[in-house]
């Protein structure tokens, strides 16, 4: 099951269009262009899995795929950490 948390080295700043995320380690900046996505990103670490975070943010079934792939891209960009991946591979440094 996919489980994410905000990367500990990432700062999030609310903006009129959503938020900006900055990674202090790789020094990359990411635009989050949607308020609901920002809500999910902020809260996803408090949930046991992605689906319950999406439930809590009120993301309708028809939009789930869009959000799932946005979150996967944020994990690739190291804005999020994939906790399930870390646990199964044991690779904490990724």
């Amino acid at each position: 099951m996919t489980r994410y948390a905000l990367h500990p080295q990432v700062g999030l700043r609310t903006e009129t269009f959503g938020a900006l995320a900055y990674h202090y380690g790789n020094r990359r900046l990411t635009f989050l262009n949607d308020d609901t996505l920002v809500t999910v990103v902020r809260s996803v670490g408090d949930h046991d899995d992605v689906e319950s975070a999406l439930d809590a943010a009120g993301v309708p079934a028809a939009r789930r795929d869009v959000y799932r792939s946005a979150l996967a891209r944020l994990a690739e960009a190291e804005v999020l950490v994939d906790l399930a991946g870390v646990e199964s591979s044991g690779d904490v440094a990724r």
Binding site: T14, E15, T16, F17, L20, F31
Partner: peptide
Amino acid sequence: MKVTDRLSRGLEA
């Protein structure tokens, strides 16, 4: 929205 349009609305910082 294009990045340029977003930025022209001004950032908080």
